[in-house]
């Protein structure tokens, strides 16, 4: 029984790490550009399928090759979207809602592009590409104190750590990173002080798209790859980013742990004590999202209304 709980905690940590890799880039891109990017969903799916296709067609089962490929694909998609759609739209003064719906159009496009490509490829490969179980064992399994730690867990932990360090290094130590933060803090001021917005924002988009795609690989080797992986994860990813107020990367990472633990351990608790079926997991996620929005309304970030439902005097 004790061992069982340790296993659950480990799984929750594993999921939290992946969630962090998925959600932090969403916060990063929102805080820099004020775009809620639905293509984030596609980054995840395309990342997962980078691994699937490399494996199916080239037999590559090295997870780090898949991760590198996913990073490049996600990053490239992300930059292309920005250059062809978001940047021209914002230059024309499109508001937040317009940018959001444009990204929704791209999401639908990419999603069904993926389905179409898979239609063709599965005919070519004569294989099922619609739900694929990838179990790469690039890293060894280890046993710590009698607890088996899977290869997927190790991969997720190491990748998350490397990405966190990379992000920290780029944002804190390089000129580009400082420029990204300046644009996020005050776009007008950044513009005035001569920061080459276009290029800097593209670097940011590349990192954001790449990271989310890497998260897709991590998810694929942990759970399953389907053309809907991104879609099934989006509720969690958005909820986590909202916990981070869509502004704070570290709070977003914290949110990943909150959601992962609430979902898994909280669900296990509700299931055992009250017999709630585990399929109702998303309710925990959504309740957390609502509680966060009600208790800590993110009025600063998304622009808010200076209105108080409960009048208060100090």
């Amino acid at each position: 029984m004790v061992n069982m709980d340790a296993y659950q905690v480990l799984t929750a940590v594993h999921i939290a790490l992946i969630y962090a890799v998925l959600a932090v880039p969403l916060t990063l891109s929102y805080k820099t550009t004020k775009i809620i990017n639905f293509v984030h969903i596609n980054f995840i799916t395309y990342g997962a399928y980078a691994a699937v296709l490399l494996y199916t067609f080239l037999g590559i089962d090295n997870v780090f090759v898949a991760i590198a490929a996913a990073f490049v694909i996600g990053g490239a998609m992300s930059v292309i979207d920005n250059v062809t759609v978001f940047e021209p739209l914002s230059r024309r003064g499109a508001n937040v809602v317009i940018l959001m719906i444009a990204s929704m159009g791209l999401w639908i496009f990419y999603k069904y592009l993926m389905y179409s490509v898979l239609d063709v490829l599965s005919r070519v490969a004569k294989a099922n590409l619609v739900s694929v179980l990838l179990r790469f064992e690039t890293l060894p399994r280890v046993v710590v104190n009698g607890m088996p730690i899977t290869s997927a867990f190790l991969t997720a932990a190491i990748t998350a750590a490397v990405l966190a360090l990379m992000l920290y290094f780029i944002l804190e130590k390089t000129a580009v990173g400082k420029a990204i933060r300046a644009i996020a803090d005050n776009p007008t001021l950044a513009e005035i002080s001569g920061i080459p917005r276009g290029r800097v924002v593209n670097v940011m988009w590349f990192m954001a798209g790449g990271m989310a795609a890497v998260g897709g690989v991590l998810w694929a080797i942990f759970a399953i790859a389907t053309p809907e992986v991104g879609d099934t994860l989006i509720l969690q990813v958005f909820a986590i980013a909202v916990i981070g107020g869509l502004t704070s990367l570290s709070r977003t990472a914290l949110g990943a742990f909150i959601i992962a633990f609430a979902e898994n351990l909280g669900m296990a608790f509700l299931n055992q004590v009250f017999g709630v079926p585990t399929s109702f997991k998303p309710f925990i996620t959504f309740s957390t999202l609502l509680i966060v929005i009600i208790a800590f309304p993110p009025l600063g970030a998304g622009g808010g209304l200076p209105y108080r439902f409960l009048r208060k005097r100090r």
Partner: peptide, 18 residues
């Protein structure tokens, strides 16, 4: 909402109103 203090308008206290 002010951290401290009061605002009065035409004999009515208005700080904290929307």
């Amino acid at each position: 909402v002010p951290t401290r203090g009061e605002v009065w308008y035409a004999g009515e206290r208005i700080d904290g109103l929307n």
